[in-house]
């Protein structure tokens, strides 16, 4: 009896997995349009922003390279239960992030995530960054460069430290793809030609960019004992 149950459950799970992997991004794209996500996010590259005014006119971050940037599992979860990523309201230095992002139902989240994960730039090399407790990366992030001046992260004794103008990098390894972090540092003109974060090309070597991407990509919640 128990064996039969296990078999049935596994078979159902397998079917569910297959149906997810077969689902087609067009379905998610239709939901994305119907839910008016397009009012605040654009999904077709290349980057459109040419001036500071262009960047400030946006109501939400661009999503045309979402498939490069995010971890698929995180994305579907966040769409259903969005928690603030940027401490401050988008494009504001004075107002806090109210945490009022529209949420989707579980099923819609999965299909929209599927659509967003299909959006890539072709500019990210997969498998180049190995995430680990990277001492060199830590040194750059917390001491040598001002990264921690603008980004929150989990510091000593698990206390959240760091600045508030950039997106929070607390548990960034769950949210972001480390290979994308490297590409973002190396080719800012592709992903964000106009941004508040300084350009580090020529200031950090490719190797050090990989070290810092490895360090940030390793930001993960401590397992509860």
């Amino acid at each position: 009896m128990r064996a039969l149950l296990t078999v049935t459950i596994s078979a159902t799970c397998l079917m569910a997995m297959v149906s997810v992997s077969k689902a087609d991004p067009a379905a998610g794209q239709a939901v994305f349009k119907a839910k008016e996500c397009v009012a605040c996010h654009y999904t077709e590259g290349p980057a459109r922003e040419k001036t500071i005014e262009d960047q400030l006119a946006k109501k939400g971050p661009e999503l045309w390279y979402a498939g490069d940037k995010f971890q698929a599992e995180w994305l579907a979860g966040w769409l259903a239960d969005p928690k603030p990523i940027r401490p401050m309201k988008f494009n504001s230095l004075t107002e806090e992030n109210a945490g009022d992002h529209p949420a989707l139902g579980a099923e819609e989240s999965a299909t929209v995530a599927e659509f967003l994960m299909s959006l890539t730039s072709g500019e990210v090399e997969a498998g180049t960054v190995k995430v680990k407790k990277n001492a060199k990366g830590r040194q750059i992030f917390t001491k040598k460069m001002p990264c921690s001046g603008c980004h929150q992260y989990t510091g000593r004794k698990k206390v959240i430290a760091g600045g508030r103008s950039g997106p929070s990098l607390v548990d960034a390894g769950v949210r972001l793809n480390a290979d994308w972090i490297l590409a973002y540092l190396k080719k800012p003109e592709v992903f964000k030609p106009v941004k508040m974060m300084p350009v580090f090309v020529g200031l950090l070597s490719d190797k050090d960019m990989a070290n810092v991407a490895s360090y940030v990509g390793n930001f993960k919640p401590k397992k509860k004992k």
Partner: peptide, 8 residues
Amino acid sequence: PMMPPWGK
């Protein structure tokens, strides 16, 4: 170093 280099 908290004062960033903006030269690039």
